[in-house]
Nucleic acid binder design. Structure first.
Lengths: 119, 119
DNA sequence: TACGGTACTATAAAAAAGGTAAGTAATGAG
DNA sequence: CTCATTACTTACCTTTTTTATAGTACCGTA
């Protein structure tokens, strides 16, 4: 995750799919390696950066920051900075972010069913 | 998409998430650039390779093949080869593949809502 | 014999995503 | 003054995903 190259075929293809298929558009928004896990963690309420890091023990700080920024840019979560030292930053789902919950639950159920099939 | 390096941290992280979160596991299965679009196309019934290619005009044959193989390996779709010349191959969703439909619809609705917010 | 249609495969390269390691700022505690 | 704490940032590197381009087998038709 970093800068995208707007001149690439890949970029053009993504744009095209995003325009034509809202489900692909949605999948792209929640589609980073850690995005869904982060959303899932925030379903139960706000959390600090460090708490998220504990819940996702193997994520690097860089990745956590990047994914949080992307989710924030996409309006999925809200970031609140408290002017304290040491700093305190809280993350919480926005309205549209909370509307992901039924989708997450459905994916969870489907994933479980799929796993059972492939035992 | 090709061989994965089982010794990479990335691979380990994915495995871990897949084990712990069924929703992430599910997202990984339907999470290629074209996978959802392919599933979507197949919701209305079986299709041939060439038909899929027409629906996704900018996909390369290689990508279409790779994604179809992956979906097949994951039991999302079934591939039927007819011993004819020129060859004919049909793809259709399996049972678990069809169970994706409500999820796709939900993603579609959510995607639309999200787009409206960001106009 | 050359050609067309279908569903691929092989190889290489580009682009995107993810990981490693180190550093930063501000402040209060010791 | 030094250290610990928190939430990052930066530069660089590896892995994974996607794209580009060319080529294959088969057989019936012209």
């Amino acid at each position: 995750m970093s800068k995208i190259k707007v001149s690439s075929t890949n970029y053009a293809n993504k744009q095209l799919l995003n325009e034509e298929c809202n489900e692909v558009y949605a999948a792209n928004i929640i589609g980073g390696q850690w995005s869904l896990a982060i959303c899932c963690a925030l379903i139960n309420g706000k959390m600090r950066f460090g708490e998220l890091r504990k819940i996702l023990p193997t994520i690097t700080e860089r990745m956590l920051t990047l994914q949080l920024r992307r989710l924030e840019d996409n309006g999925i979560l809200k970031r609140t900075v408290y002017a304290e030292v040491p700093p305190r930053v809280e993350y919480e789902l926005t309205g549209i972010g909370q509307q992901l919950e039924p989708i997450i639950r459905a994916l969870e159920t489907w994933g479980q069913a799929h796993k059972n099939l492939h035992l």
